[in-house]
Design a protein around this nucleic acid. Structure first.
Lengths: 361, 361
DNA sequence: AGAAAAAAGTTAAACGTTTAACTTTTTTAA
DNA sequence: TTAAAAAAGTTAAACGTTTAACTTTTTTCT
């Protein structure tokens, strides 16, 4: 390892001078600076960031705790964090809870006590590594486990509704998205719109139903609670619940995620109901599958990358002591993607390849 | 920040004693140790890992460079690394190239020069952070950009064929998987098996064709080059190429990824050909979509998690100076997943939900 | 030319650890 | 009862930086 000491020897200056040059600090002549720089380059010098952060008491590093890295939302959020960090000269360290692997994906299966312990231990490690702040990326609908460290180090929650009003969070706007989906269906002439909701206890479910009701209300359509059925986010549930809705006479279904919407498509295909013609269908999440099923599925695209970026901006603002613009709870809008399942003319779907994600094997 | 100095003051011992206690080193009485430990706990002491690694010249940290975090294979590989690192008391730092975001997913679009620069800069940063080794996670079929740092720090390549024989790599066995797929189709009585291959220049394509040919040869079936068509890994290509193969009289198609296989399904559905009955179909990759399409798609599941684990084991073995068991190039087997598209009785598919990934929105 | 001011450069301590070398205390054994 | 051995504990230097305080050199101004 080449150190500034070696550079200073070779350049015949003190290590302080080398340090100044390397950090672009004043108090050294251009001649000397060039000389030092050229030697540093020649020796292939690389600063020891650990030593620097030790001395400065500032690591320029954020910690990221992910509830589960392999869940579809997480990588894009990290991508957003990555880009923003890079632009600001920040680094980050990842820590992964592997919640789904440990407990499966039903909120009731989670052992909160064990989970809290786990989070605390990850947080401890991050603090040991001198991170300046921690971004917590959720993946579940269950309420986030509260942290006891929130006054030791700044926290920002991403992709989850934080229960602690003092902890900032960045989330997408479930209610607004649901409102827009419903409004769109109403604009197409639907008045009997069924909902295949998520788990009853999920805050996503609650907010999406609120948005749905709001749109009905705005358009003077009475809310019929029998047209809102609760599912478990799985495909099969979409399959079975669609039968009930269709028998109740709905002309459109808003499923709270793409997987349940696929179930609806399966049911319809089996029973000769043409989705996109006899029935309009919306999903939620814009999973890859929604672009490949038949008919292709209209859905809601989540601003994952933006959530990552905003969470990071928020964190860096907090660390810099800025007063936080836009408040502590940021809600980002989703975008609505119309495809064949809501009767989009097929021609418009020609260039759907632009929406496909990674395709290489 | 609580330091060992504060503990030593409060406990009335030297900092050396505190250090010994905290590290479980000998030369301190049980009485003193307990005393120190209780004070450390009381003060909520957390070691400064940066300071420790500075002194020890050993960070217990690996660097990970991902070509693209948002590509389907990457998160599971990281999961494997995470688990293995955790079990060995190692940490890791992630660095993301965002190759797809920068260049799209066609190998020819990559600016190798710029890309090399990028990798070098990420590697530089990792070295500055004193990582002990770097695991490189590929995602593309193009050859991996060689690194100039391979004699400064140990590298292990994961999910890519390294061209440098001195750099260890962990990969899944394309050829063996293709052999097994083909053998399975032959066992079902097929002799005219078409291939919708990946890009001609991809090493995956080459190896999968080799496995296919090997199986034909083993079973005394002549190889007909006209039944192997090259695609571009995209769905549409699967759609168009299937026409040619079906006209040539194949009774089974082996597509080199699930996306192109979906294209085949689409073609067949449109032309009244029953996949799983009139035609047997295999994909590759076990993307989520393969479990949700109609009919469900037989495919090859990649040992992603295991690749991560093995890469990490390999790296830690190298760092520990062990002689590497299993050699420097590790090939892990894939597993074959049979579903409806190869004529599996529908009953067997009842509990397919166990295969679904994350389903929560 | 010479004093004052500005610029260039150096010294040394510090960040929080670990650890080799040392000293003091306790235990063992004849 | 002692001397030797073992155990317990301390001192001080080091890891690679940064930076406040200082000294030396150069420039500016009269």
């Amino acid at each position: 390892m080449v150190t500034i000491r070696e550079i200073s020897k070779k350049a015949n200056v003190s290590i302080a001078t080398v340090s100044k040059v390397l950090n672009g600090k004043p108090g050294v002549s251009k001649f000397t600076a060039d000389h030092v720089l050229s030697i540093a380059r020649e020796l292939n010098y690389r600063p020891n960031l650990n030593a620097r952060s030790l001395k400065k008491g500032q690591s320029q590093t954020l910690g990221i705790i992910t509830e589960d890295l392999t869940v579809f939302n997480t990588p894009d959020i990290i991508d957003g964090i990555d880009v923003y960090c890079e632009s600001q000269g920040y680094h980050y360290i990842l820590s992964n809870l592997r919640l789904n692997k440990r407990y499966g994906n039903h909120p009731d299966d989670i052992d909160i006590k064990e989970c809290t312990k786990l989070i605390n231990s990850l947080t401890d490690t991050l603090l040991s590594k001198q991170v300046n702040g921690i971004i917590y990326i959720g993946c579940h609908s269950h309420a986030v486990v509260p942290t006891k460290y929130s006054n030791e180090i700044p926290f920002v929650y991403a992709y989850c509704y934080s229960t602690n009003p003092k902890i900032p969070s960045v989330m997408y706007d479930d209610q607004k998205a649901a409102f827009e989906v419903t409004q769109l269906l109403i604009n197409k002439g639907h008045t009997h719109i069924g909902v295949i909701a998520g788990l009853r206890e999920s805050i996503h479910t609650t907010n999406r139903i609120l948005g749905y009701q709001e749109a009905l209300y705005t358009n003077n359509i009475p809310y019929n609670p029998r047209l809102t059925l609760y599912g478990n986010w799985e495909r099969d549930e979409g399959y079975y619940l669609s039968e009930e809705l269709i028998k109740a006479g709905v002309t459109a279904i808003f499923a709270h995620n793409d997987l349940m919407a696929i179930g609806v498509i399966d049911y319809c295909n089996k029973h000769g109901i043409q989705v996109g013609k006899d029935l309009s269908l919306f999903g939620f999440d814009n999973r890859e599958i929604s672009a490949y099923c038949h008919p292709t599925l209209s859905t809601v695209s989540l601003p994952l990358f933006e959530i990552g970026q905003h969470a990071t901006r928020l964190m860096l603002d907090i660390l810099a002591g800025h007063n936080i613009e836009g408040g502590l709870k940021i809600m980002l809008p989703c975008s609505i993607i119309e495809r064949e399942s809501t009767g989009l003319p097929v021609s418009k779907e020609k260039n759907k390849s632009e929406e496909s994600h990674e395709t290489r094997s």
